[in-house]
């Protein structure tokens, strides 16, 4: 199934743009999706602890299960002030 990824701030560079579609296995969780991203782009690796996921507009834990067409936002902390 396919999910829609959104990335913000510095994660846009890592994802290679602000938006992207990604195929994941049926029944995949956000943790599975993250593992997939790290495989494709090792730069994601060290950011695991500081990235939050929003699933269809709600900030949720990584065990949340994905469904076809879900929107997953990758939210890093922004440092600047």
């Amino acid at each position: 199934m396919t999910v829609r990824l959104l990335a913000f701030a510095g994660l846009r560079d890592v994802l290679g743009g602000p938006k992207r579609e990604l195929s994941v296995a049926d029944g995949a969780t956000l943790a599975d999706l993250w593992a997939e991203l790290v495989r494709a782009r090792p730069q994601f690796g060290p950011l695991e602890g500081s990235t939050r996921f929003a699933l269809n507009g709600r900030l949720v834990a990584r065990d949340a299960t994905l469904a076809e067409g879900d929107e997953v936002a990758l939210m890093p902390p922004f440092g600047g002030g």
Partner: peptide
């Protein structure tokens, strides 16, 4: 929102 501070240098 963000349980832990990101590793030094990992977030520009």
């Amino acid at each position: 929102l963000f349980p832990e501070a990101p590793p030094e240098g990992s977030v520009p």
